[in-house]
Design a protein around this nucleic acid. Sequence first.
DNA 1: TTAAATACTTAGGATATCCTATATTTACAG
DNA 2: CTGTAAATATAGGATATCCTAAGTATTTAA
Lengths: 92, 92
Amino acid sequence: MRGLLSFQILWLLSKRKMHGEEIAIEIGRRRGDKPKPGTLYPALKELKASGLISGNRKGKTITYSLTPYGRKSVLGATRYFCRAFGDILEGR
Amino acid sequence: MRGLLSFQILWLLSKRKMHGEEIAIEIGRRRGDKPKPGTLYPALKELKASGLISGNRKGKTITYSLTPYGRKSVLGATRYFCRAFGDILEGR
DNA sequence: TTAAATACTTAGGATATCCTATATTTACAG
DNA sequence: CTGTAAATATAGGATATCCTAAGTATTTAA
């Protein structure tokens, strides 16, 4: 089962600011294993290039947060996600 | 947002037997537009090749249903899905 | 019997997704 | 200052995902 990594990153960032490692840990908690650095950071890079998130470097770490555009996009994407897959969770 | 087509097909078939068009319509209801034939049928073909579903042709239509292996796989996949994405749906 | 509609099939390809493997940067302990 | 750990970065590639754009078979209607 593949997909939705970028969406999940955006969704996590809609809850609170996080840096890369925190995001990896949160995803790992949910999926069972952490995305590899070579998976996560290119995804973050692309989300940034798309204007959906912005990064704030402080020393070693970069704290990411949603841009206004990102915030709007997550809302729409979440609506789509719930409509598309909502009933899968109702069964259990 | 891409992904999970095969999983969604399996999940729908865990509810009841369906033929291709019915599956397309059910997915269309959820996602907002029906997968194209060139998307859906290759996916069905691959699920069949993997031993997850079996098809029963009657004239023009093929009714698909889960194999025992498919039934077991859907259970596991659904558990994974709920663990990975469950909290996204709890918010709304 | 022909025409249209329905269900399915296939070829070929664009893009997304995620990986391995390696490198870089920064912080900090010794 | 040196070594190590933590956080991030990048190259390159395998595979998945989904599409467009055709096509074939089967049924139904005229």
